[in-house]
């Protein structure tokens, strides 16, 4: 119980700080909305084509907008050397990591849940045909993005060019998860439920989340302290 309480304390602190400053969430919202609006005005595609590419478009936006949130995750601890105080506190690296990942997850998911209706309205494409399955894919894909982004945010926190390094390190590793999420999202937006032909992508997405969460929990203490 103490572990989960510590996770919640770290997550609540990050969310409270972010809601007060809005430094990451505002940039992330603005980026996602601008890209989605530009796309809808730049291309006059038939609805069928838009449905086919919806997974790709949405997850590219989510990945880039998400990086803006994830970049701030550990960088937020740098002013005043707050990271030292967290490392010195008697909490495990795993609790610290999970707390930060949870806060990032909430923020990235919020950006996605606003982006989805914007995409739907401006491209005249309904996203409600397989709504709950789409939410499941969103939840799994976002957790993968968040876990990888949070651990690399910890790894790059003391690097001068961390804003550049984070996407360079995370995107190659995220490719399998993004591919799965894109395939499933396109199918679900087109109204096709998850079935035998794309079930493997869902399993891969779940496997990706489980494996990288476990690896991150094991490695985070070494990443933070050396």
């Amino acid at each position: 119980m103490r572990f989960f309480r510590q996770v919640w304390v770290v997550a609540a602190k990050d969310l409270r700080a972010e809601f007060r400053t809005k430094e990451a969430i505002n940039a992330s919202f603005a980026f996602a909305l601008v890209i989605l609006l530009m796309f809808s005005f730049a291309f006059d595609l038939p609805v069928e084509t838009t449905r086919e590419i919806s997974g790709g478009l949405l997850w590219i936006v989510f990945a880039f907008a998400g990086t803006l949130v994830l970049n701030r995750s550990f960088a937020r601890e740098l002013p005043n050397d707050c990271l030292d105080a967290l490392i010195a506190a008697p909490i495990s690296g795993a609790a610290l990591f999970l707390g930060k990942a949870l806060a990032n997850y909430v923020l990235v998911l919020a950006v996605e849940l606003v982006s989805l209706p914007v995409f739907s309205i401006f491209n005249n494409v309904s996203v409600t045909a397989q709504f709950w399955e789409l939410m499941l894919v969103l939840a799994l894909g976002t957790w993968g993005l968040t876990v990888i982004g949070t651990i690399f945010s910890a790894l790059t926190v003391n690097i001068r060019l961390r804003e550049v390094m984070l996407p360079m390190l995370t995107y190659p590793i995220l490719v399998p998860a993004l591919m799965g999420a894109m395939q499933l999202t396109s199918a679900l937006v087109a109204g096709k439920p998850i079935g035998a032909d794309n079930e493997a992508w869902l399993k891969m997405l779940i496997g990706f989340d489980v494996v990288y969460t476990a690896v991150s929990l094991v490695l985070v203490e070494t990443v933070l302290v050396g």
């Binding site: 602190k13 409270r16 700080a17 007060r20 400053t21 002013p79 005043n80 050397d81 707050c82 030292d84 105080a85 010195a88 506190a89 008697p90």
Partner: peptide, 18 residues
Amino acid sequence: TRRRVGFIGHGISVYDEL
């Protein structure tokens, strides 16, 4: 051990937003 140690470093290690 960490429970028994207090540290004051170069930074103040408190959050400006709180």
